[in-house]
Design a protein around this nucleic acid. Sequence first.
DNA 1: CGCTTGACACCGT
DNA 2: AACGGTGCCAAGC
Length: 104
Amino acid sequence: MSFKESVLNLCKRIPKGKVSTYKEIAKALNTKAYRAVGNALKHNKNAPIIPCHRVISSDGSLGGYQGKLNSKKKIDMLKKEGIIVEKGKIKKFKEKLFNAFSSS
DNA sequence: CGCTTGACACCGT
DNA sequence: AACGGTGCCAAGC
């Protein structure tokens, strides 16, 4: 289980309609390597089974993930889940911020 | 004063 | 070793 495995595993627990930040995930893992979290998602080999698109920057922006895939489609999907994305920024993102610590 | 943008440093792969 | 990516800080307007 590499560090990224933990990250992927954690972001995988993010419930629908909720989002999390790299920093939150890093904290959940008791690590300060939130930078590596972004890298882990980038390496995300479980992309199809991991909603890494729900993981955003602490300021509510989608981050670098949105520039890699058909972001527009994913953003639309997030909106369907209840996450409003305005020009790449999540509206009320804090209300949807999933507490990674709430995981069991 | 409030907000925004840019740069830097750090971590893991 | 380098790259990619994030978060915080500072400065400027």
